Simulated scan of single mutants.
Amino acid sequence: MELRTASPAELKTVYETFLRSSFPPAELKPLRAMMDMYNDGCYDPLVLVDGEEIMGACFLWLGVPGWALLDYLCVSPTRRSGGYGAKILQLMRQAYAGWTIIGEAEDPAFSPDPAMAERRLGFYTRNNTLIAAYDSEAFGVRYKTLYWSDNPVDEAELALQHRFIYESSFGEEKYAKYVRIPCPAGAKPMPQIPWDQ
Rank of each mutant, 00 (worst) to 15 (best):
Pro30Met: 05
Cys42Ile: 15
Tyr38Arg: 10
Asp44Lys: 13
Pro65Val: 04
Asp196Arg: 14
Ala117Thr: 07
Glu27Arg: 13
Leu19Thr: 04
Phe59His: 14
Ala68Ile: 06
Ala57Trp: 00
Ala86Leu: 01
Ala176Cys: 03
Tyr15Asp: 02
Met190His: 11
Lys177Ala: 09
Glu106Asn: 09
Ala185Glu: 13
Ala159Trp: 02
Tyr178Pro: 09
Thr13Gln: 10
Met1Gly: 13
Asp44Glu: 15
Tyr166Ser: 05
Ser149Ile: 09
Gly103Val: 05
Ile88Leu: 01
Ile193Thr: 13
Leu60Gly: 06
Met34Tyr: 14
Gln161Lys: 14
Glu2Leu: 08
Leu48Asp: 00
Thr145Met: 00
Met190Ser: 12
Leu69His: 14
Arg20Trp: 02
Lys12Thr: 15
Arg79Gln: 13
Phe110Thr: 15
Arg163Ile: 02
Ile181Asp: 00
Glu2Ser: 12
Gln161His: 14
Cys74Lys: 00
Leu69Glu: 08
Met55His: 09
Glu16Ile: 08
Gly56Asn: 03
Ile165Ser: 02
Pro25Glu: 05
Arg180Leu: 04
Gly171Thr: 12
Glu173Asn: 09
Tyr134His: 15
Gln161Met: 07
Trp67Thr: 11
Tyr178Arg: 12
Pro189Ala: 06
Ser22Asp: 06
Trp99Asn: 08
Ala86Pro: 10
Arg180Ser: 08
Phe23Trp: 05
Pro191Asp: 00
Tyr38Glu: 03
Tyr15Lys: 07
Ala68Lys: 10
Gln197Leu: 10
Cys74Glu: 02
Arg79Val: 04
Ala185Ser: 13
Leu146Glu: 00
Val179Pro: 05
Asp71Cys: 04
Trp99Arg: 11
Cys42Glu: 07
Pro184His: 06
Met190Gly: 08
Asn39Ala: 12
Thr78Tyr: 09
Ala9Phe: 06
Lys188Tyr: 06
Ala95Tyr: 03
Tyr175Arg: 09
Thr100Gly: 02
Asn151Asp: 14
Ser149Phe: 05
Pro65Tyr: 06
Val14Ser: 01
Ala33Asn: 11
Ala9Ser: 12
Ala115Gln: 14
Ala159Cys: 04
Leu69Ile: 11
Phe170Thr: 10
Ala156Ser: 12
Lys177Ile: 03
Ser136Glu: 03
Pro24Asp: 02
Ala117Met: 05
Gly171Pro: 12
Phe170Met: 15
Val75Pro: 04
Asn39Ser: 12
Phe18Asn: 03
Ser76Asn: 13
Pro189Glu: 04
Ala105Cys: 10
Leu28Lys: 08
Tyr178Met: 06
Ser21Pro: 00
Leu146Arg: 10
Tyr175Ala: 04
Leu160Cys: 11
Tyr178Phe: 15
Lys29Cys: 03
Thr100Ser: 02
